[in-house]
């Protein structure tokens, strides 16, 4: 298993940023801003954010913003709340939130709230609790949570709670670890975790750990490194993370490293990507792996950044 190949992962992330010619990079072009968030956050957790030219990043991000206030996934692509979150997170990471026209951005997000409290992802009206989380997370970081109807937003999320204690995309939707992270995260940020049955959901979540030590996202599915984040962060927010075997999970994540070229994959010996590299490193941070910065389970940003935003002066 060995140790976390910190140096190699840093080099891998820096190389992904430059690589634009292979098919996978082109397929992902429309969500480059998500990729930037995954890569930059990983670098920060590894203590290497300083290697990045932050002015360059910030000016590129601002080029992704539309008149509506929302951000696209890359220059020229349509605005969507999914990419708006990444933009806000990256600017927070780089301590550069003051470049934003906060009112304009806030108007974009609050304008996506529907009558029933739910949020649409963009003007085309897809509704999903992922978007509720994003809206709440962004506005909280910007200290503008009062600009939406929080009570209705919370009630909508609660209406997506299932009989297994988990949450789905919309009312009646099946519980899924990624969706549970979004809903539990939104409830955590709004001080509403009393709506969660912590023991019931905690049992469902801890049973995501399979024999190999990895975590799956739903019952009877394969484990995947990305669930190290979705499941772990949810378990931490409800104080039930001790219900899984942390050491076995650490081993599983380390087994998914490409020890030659850096990067982390979904399962051992699969192809690596920046998405799973982020989730692997963030998962290890939640597991208190030595040498990594601590990450906040609700905002998905390093703890020191969140503490600076909420407790700094």
């Amino acid at each position: 298993m060995g140790e976390l190949e910190m140096e190699k992962h840093v080099l891998y992330i820096l190389s992904v940023e430059k690589k634009k010619d292979d098919f996978e990079s082109v397929v992902m072009e429309h969500l480059r801003i998500n990729g930037a968030y995954w890569g930059l956050t990983t670098l920060d957790l590894l203590g290497k954010l300083g290697t990045v030219d932050s002015d360059e990043v910030v000016s590129w991000i601002l080029k992704c913003q539309h008149d509506s206030g929302g951000f696209g996934g890359n220059i020229g692509h349509d605005p969507h709340i999914l990419y708006t979150l990444s933009a806000v997170q990256i600017l927070a990471l780089l301590n550069n939130l003051d470049v934003l026209d906060v009112d304009k951005l806030t108007n974009y997000i609050s304008g996506l709230q529907n009558e029933d409290g739910s949020f649409s992802g963009d003007v085309w009206g897809e509704v999903d609790t992922r978007f509720s989380y994003i809206a709440i997370c962004c506005l909280s970081i910007l200290h503008r949570l009062d600009r939406i109807n929080v009570e209705k937003a919370v009630n909508y999320i609660v209406s997506c709670k299932n009989l297994d204690g988990g949450f789905g995309c919309t009312p009646g939707g099946e519980s899924h670890a990624g969706q549970i992270f979004c809903c539990v995260g939104a409830l955590a940020i709004t001080g509403s975790l009393h709506h969660v049955d912590k023991d019931l959901l905690g049992w469902w979540l801890c049973e995501r750990q399979v024999k190999s030590g990895g975590l799956n996202g739903r019952p009877e599915k394969l484990p995947d490194v990305c669930y190290s984040w979705w499941v772990l962060s949810s378990l931490i927010m409800i104080d039930r993370v001790h219900w899984i075997d942390k050491e076995k999970l650490v081993r599983f994540i380390l087994d998914c490293q490409d020890k030659e070229n850096g990067g982390i994959s979904d399962r051992p010996d699969d192809a690596v990507d920046v998405f799973h590299t982020y989730f692997g490193v963030a998962g290890l941070s939640l597991l208190e792996y030595p040498g990594l910065k601590a990450i906040d389970p609700a905002y998905a940003l390093p703890v020191d950044i969140i503490n600076r935003i909420f407790f700094g002066r």
Partner: peptide, 19 residues
């Protein structure tokens, strides 16, 4: 380094204590 009751406690992080 990871606080498992960070969000079960009233604080500005969860908007349960005024900033």
């Amino acid at each position: 380094s990871i606080d498992t009751t960070r969000y079960l406690c009233s604080s500005p992080l969860s908007h349960t204590v005024g900033s």
